[in-house]
Design a protein around this nucleic acid. Structure first.
Lengths: 215, 215
DNA sequence: CGAGTTTGTCAACACGCTGTTGAGAATTGA
DNA sequence: TCAATTCTCAACAGCGTGTTGACAAACTCG
C-alpha cells in the first residue's frame, strides 16, 4: 500500500545516484535518525536531505513533507504486522493457551524488530491524521481477529460468556500496544522485555477464560 | 468551565488586569483551545497571548515557554488524580469487585472531567521530558497501589498466585490509560463511554482472581 | 549523433514560528 | 512627589518549512 512511484530500474554505474536509490537513502536516513532516539519533531527536512546526500529542495522532489517519510516507514511496518498476523484464529481449539501466546509473540516480534519506527508511529498517531488512520486500521485488524476468536471459544464452550467480545478485544489489543511501547521505549513504569509476553498472556487468558462478571 | 478569573486581591476597576489574572487567563485560554480539539503543536504562543489579551513578549513574562503552560495544566490534573486515588487499598476485603470498580471509576472520572487536558498530557508525554516524568510519576502511584492490593488479596487467599503483582499492575494500569484515552478522544477502535468501566473491571478481575497461568 | 523531452538539482526567496532586547508606561510605596 | 517595581510591547534575530524558476544531466527517437 505504500509506494506507487513506478520509477523503472534503469540504473547505470558512475552517474549520479538516481530515483529509487535516493528515495531509499532518505528512508534509511530517517530510520537511522529515529534509532538514535530522536523524536520526529527533532529531525528536520535538512537532516534527511543531507543524510541522503541531496539538498533540501531536492528532498521535496521525492516526498511531499517530512511526515510523508515517516508515514512510509510506518506503512512498511504495518504491512509486516498484517502479514505476520496470519491465521491466528483458525486453529485455536488445539491448544488455546499456546495459540494465544503465539499471537502475542507475533505482536511482540513485529513491533520489537523495528521498535524505533513503532515508537515514531505511536507518536505520529497523535499529531498526524493520516498516521492516525493507518494505525487505526492495524488496530482494527487485530481487534477483529481477536473478536472472532473470543466468540468462537465461547461458542464451543471453552470460554464463559461475559462482556461483549469486541469490547474485550479492543481493551486487550490496546493494552498490548501501550505495554509493548513502554517496554521497548523503556518508558517507566514498564514490564521487563523478557517477561512481557507472559504477563500479557496471563491477562488475556484471565479475561477470556476467567470468571465471568458481565451484566 | 473556562472562566476562572476570580478577581483576586487588589482589584480596581478601569486599571489594566494584573498579575495572577493574566496568568489565569493564559491557562484558561490554553484549556479552551485544547477543548476545541487542537493539538499542542497547533496552538502558538501568539494564540495564547491574544486569548489572554496581551502581546507575545508579555506572555514570556508569565511563562518560560508554550510547553510550560500545558505542563501547568497537566500538573493540576495530576494533583486531582492523586487526591482522588485515596485509600483504594485499605478496605478491599469487604467487597473486592465493588472496591476495584470504585478505583476504576476514580480513574474514569479524573481523566473524563478534563479530557482535553488528559489528551494533551498523553501527547506531551511523548515529546516533552518534563511531561514524561510527571506522567510517569502518576502512573507509578497507581501501579504501586494496585501492586499492594493484588499482593494483599493473594496473601489472604482471595486471589491465586500468578505473574508478579507489579507486572500485572503495570499492564493493567497501562491498559486503563490507553483505553480511556481512546474512549474519551473517540479514537477508534474505542470502547463506548457507557461500558468502558465494566469492560476494564472484568479484565482486572479476570487477571487478578482468574485462573493462574504462571511461569 | 543531435534535438527535444524527461528527470533531477539547487540558490534564492517568502513566510511563520519561537524566543530576546531594550525602551518605556502604569502602579506602588515612602 | 519621586523612585523602585511591575508590566508591556515594537523591533529584532534566528531557525524551520515549503516554493519558484533557472539550469544540468540522462534518456529517447529521428
Amino acid at each position: 500500500m505504500a509506494d506507487m512511484t513506478g520509477t523503472p530500474p534503469r540504473g547505470r554505474r558512475g552517474t549520479r545516484p538516481s530515483g529509487e536509490e535516493r528515495e531509499s537513502a532518505i528512508l534509511a536516513t530517517a530510520e537511522r535518525l529515529l534509532e538514535e532516539d530522536r523524536a520526529i519533531q527533532d529531525i528536520s527536512v535538512d537532516d534527511l536531505a543531507r543524510g541522503a546526500g541531496i539538498s533540501r529542495p531536492s528532498f521535496y522532489f521525492y516526498f511531499a513533507s517530512k511526515d510523508a517519510v515517516f508515514l512510509a516507514l510506518v506503512d512498511r511496518l504495518v504491512a509486516q504486522a498484517d502479514a505476520g498476523r496470519g491465521d491466528l484464529l483458525d486453529r485455536l481449539s488445539e491448544d488455546p493457551a499456546a495459540r494465544w501466546r503465539e499471537g502475542l509473540h507475533v505482536f511482540f516480534e513485529t513491533f520489537g524488530a523495528h521498535r524505533a519506527v513503532a515508537r515514531a508511529g505511536a507518536q505520529a498517531r497523535l499529531t498526524n491524521p493520516e498516521a492516525r488512520e493507518l494505525w487505526a486500521g492495524v488496530m482494527e485488524n487485530w481487534v477483529h481477529d481477536a473478536t472472532l476468536a473470543i466468540d468462537s471459544e465461547r461458542a464451543r464452550g471453552a470460554a464463559p460468556p461475559g462482556q461483549p467480545a469486541r469490547d474485550l478485544a479492543i481493551a486487550l489489543v490496546s493494552m498490548n500496544e501501550r505495554v509493548l511501547y513502554a517496554t521497548f521505549a523503556q518508558d517507566p513504569p514498564a514490564v521487563d522485555e523478557a517477561h512481557v509476553v507472559d504477563v500479557l498472556l496471563s491477562i488475556w487468558l484471565g479475561a477470556i477464560y476467567g470468571a465471568p462478571s458481565g451484566p
